[in-house]
């Protein structure tokens, strides 16, 4: 079963589609969680997900706003989509009949 941060990363990458890369995924996660996302956690999780076969990464083109440095592009694989879906289903099932009020 995926970890919670792994799920957040996979979902953010899936939403971003062709524009999924390190900084963009980080921004998506920070917006969704309202908490800062560390570069260390992000990149080590990217490696872990790639090792499990849930994503594929490659170096993209550099750009001036990145000081001429390339991006690490991310694409969710079919296995990754299945894992994220299983996690989502599990969360939905276990949450049945439970309402968490925002404090």
């Amino acid at each position: 079963m995926l970890g919670e941060f792994e799920y957040l990363l996979l979902t953010a990458a899936a939403r971003l589609g062709d524009e999924a890369y390190g900084a963009a995924i980080r921004e998506e996660i920070e917006e969704a969680t309202g908490a800062p996302c560390s570069i260390g956690a992000l990149y080590t999780t990217l490696d872990r997900l790639e090792h499990k076969g849930f994503i594929k990464t490659w170096m993209g083109d550099p750009s001036p706003e990145r000081g001429g440095r390339p991006k690490r592009m991310v694409r969710v694989t079919a296995n990754g989509a299945r894992a994220a879906s299983a996690f989502y289903d599990a969360v939905m099932r276990v949450s049945r009949g439970v309402a968490w009020s925002a404090k």
């Binding site: 390190g22 900084a23 921004e27 990149y43 706003e65 990145r66 000081g67 390339p70 991006k71």
Partner: peptide, 14 residues
Amino acid sequence: RDERAAVCGDLLEA
């Protein structure tokens, strides 16, 4: 090398 470029690029972009 690759990670260095990607990480520094992400931080500059942010």
